[in-house]
Nucleic acid binder design. Structure first.
Lengths: 209, 209
DNA sequence: GTATTGATGTCGTGG
DNA sequence: CCACGACGTCAATAC
């Protein structure tokens, strides 16, 4: 009845085991099982967005007796089916992706478009994703005095670890005169204090600007 | 036909919009829609484990004309149903949680059980989750000379940010003589170099020990 | 393949 | 309610 070669949704009483990066198991119960054409296998319990168990794309699904097994090179999900309550094959399932707006990338663009007023500097050059040994700096503005203004952009509240991320990047920019900035919609008190300690400035910027 | 008060799975031709932390939209197509009793609403396209759109627990679902809307205080998912291909109500959906093994917590226990040989010290006291202003240190061993051996435990390869996390914690331990350790199954080259710079030691430990 | 990072991250936990 | 960190994070991207 179940066709492991085709995508389907299944409501069944089952037990589920997982072995791979960790191990998990759960006894009999009613769960929703989704199988996708890319090999993904997803098991949902009655609450939360995150699946109870899953295995990602590029895995293969087999059915032996009453056991569904999704296998990848390093992982395995085993579903013992006790009773099939409902089965439906998903024909012509659409794979279109959503169009997203409001990402960090967009914030960077807004920052660049408004750099003069937001940072209060004259900009002679803009660099995106400037590489350092420790990783890329989101945006670097060079002003007319050849000072580098290095900005770490976050789409959410600036946290402590963002401060250290910037510190880590700037520690590899030593040859240049640098000013550090953290740009985002908000900053917490402890992060604000830590930023002050390092002389980093906070620039308020969000999706609505 | 659709009962928004009950959990269900639905296969339908629909368009989906999201507004909240970001915004997204996608045109007509066949998708799987899950609704859970806690308010979660999950929309799956034909590939990948992660849902195309979703809204979390504590949201409410309404149906007006042909529009399903999941609303939380700050977010909204709107699904315009063009055609219902298949609908099934999920009665007595189980909510049992899986039992996980192989977590960081277990690694900490193994570390503590083998501290003498792994760190090469004599242990007079063990503290878990020792609080500093910057956050909790996973494990702190005090030796017979009253030296603190502070260990950040990771269940995966040690990354650069783990080094800085430890640094951040230890910077608030100044009154005490401290030694820093990073414990995990592996460490990359750049993280290894950075750890050396701070004098932190790497302790190899994994699930198989 | 490895390495790194963003994410509508989600989720639990503790103050 | 916010803050913080783990997660089988996932998924995209650079190398």
């Amino acid at each position: 009845m179940i066709d492991v070669l085709k995508p389907f949704m299944l409501y069944a009483n089952c037990s589920v085991e997982y072995a791979g990066r960790a191990n998990s198991s759960v006894g009999p119960g009613l769960r929703v099982i989704l199988h996708k054409a890319d090999g993904s296998l997803i098991v949902h319990k009655a609450s939360n967005v995150t699946p109870m168990n899953y295995i990602g794309p590029k895995s293969t699904l087999t059915l032996e007796n009453q056991t569904l097994t999704g296998r990848s090179k390093t992982e395995r999900v085993t579903i013992l089916i006790n009773e099939i309550i409902h089965y439906h094959e998903l024909i012509e399932w659409s794979n279109d992706s959503i169009k997203l707006t409001g990402t960090e990338n967009e914030l960077c663009e807004k920052l660049i478009a408004n750099a003069g007023s937001l940072l209060g500097i004259g900009v002679s050059r803009v660099q995106r994703e400037l590489l350092t040994v420790a990783g890329p700096i989101d945006v670097v503005f060079t002003d007319f005095n050849d000072i580098r203004h290095c900005v770490e952009v976050k789409r959410k509240k600036i946290t402590m670890s963002a401060i250290y991320q910037l510190y880590r990047y700037l520690s590899h920019m030593s040859p240049y005169a640098c000013v550090g900035y953290l740009a985002g919609p908000d900053i917490g008190n402890s992060a604000r204090r830590e930023a002050d300690k390092y002389g980093y400035k906070f620039v308020k910027i969000d999706h609505s600007i």
